[in-house]
Design a protein around this nucleic acid. Structure first.
Lengths: 130, 130
DNA sequence: ATACTTCTTAAAGCATACTTGAAGTCAAGC
DNA sequence: GCTTGACTTCAAGTATGCTTTAAGAAGTAT
């Protein structure tokens, strides 16, 4: 039921150095060690890492992730604040997506422009794979 | 028909320091100067800045933006390469959006979890604005 | 028991994208 | 004519998020 840092790295796709970094930055709780002072991750730690990764992938800065994860370790009294944080973060993420989609339309216009412009050149092959 | 750096900053929302930085990084062509060696941006430069901003907002790193903008200044012979770049960039942007949307679902699950968990507490007010 | 591998910590280093500071130029207002 | 304010360049500094290095400990294979 305990995973080495190597195994966790394999499962999460995160380099071991990053897992150590997250721990020193207190995004993860102090991971229990084995007899040789090596990290022995529990299932629970894997789930914590998944949450951190989700927040990171949605653009939350390390500082805020630390804040949130610390609240998680402080029990039910922090539930309302955690709720406010995830609500605000959902909003922020929705706005990021909306902004990306808006910019994507500009990129699409560029694609259309270049497709037309290239079509007028002497048919450069190998561009049909789209 | 010529804009001061201050005016361009106001129109684009980018700090003057960033406009200078983009120029030294050759994301913009050398901007023409007035009699006092001050930048006098033309309409064309505003459009160039808009393109740079679009690429930046969609996550393209400075290096690649420089590459693309340099190709733009090299004439029609670079059209096929520019086409390949915008195609690849569209793909990358679509993938980024898709990944964000996937992670957003996880965030939504967190929101639902915390809404329920908070509902079981003594009704903390001021959270209904969603 | 000796070598190899994998881990440990702490500190330093790196990449990216700007931002700030210092020292100087120039036109305008008082 | 002197100050003020907006600009100039160039170099150095900052913030974020890791990654690498150095020095060492412990378990494993020969």
């Amino acid at each position: 039921m305990a995973y080495s840092i190597r195994e966790v790295s394999r499962r999460t796709g995160l380099p071991a150095s990053t897992l150590r970094y997250y721990e020193t930055e207190r995004l993860l709780p102090p991971v229990p060690r084995d007899g040789a002072r090596r990290r022995a991750y529990a299932q629970e730690d894997l789930e914590t890492i998944a949450v951190v990764t989700c927040l990171k992938n949605t653009g939350m800065p390390i500082q805020e992730i630390r804040r949130f994860m610390q609240l998680c370790r402080q029990g039910d009294s922090t539930l309302p604040e955690r709720y406010r944080i995830v609500l605000a973060h959902r909003r922020a993420t929705q706005e990021r997506i909306a902004r990306l989609q808006k910019e994507l339309m500009h990129v699409n216009q560029k694609v259309a422009y270049y497709r037309a412009a290239c079509g007028l050149l002497d048919e450069p092959d190998g561009l049909e794979g789209e």
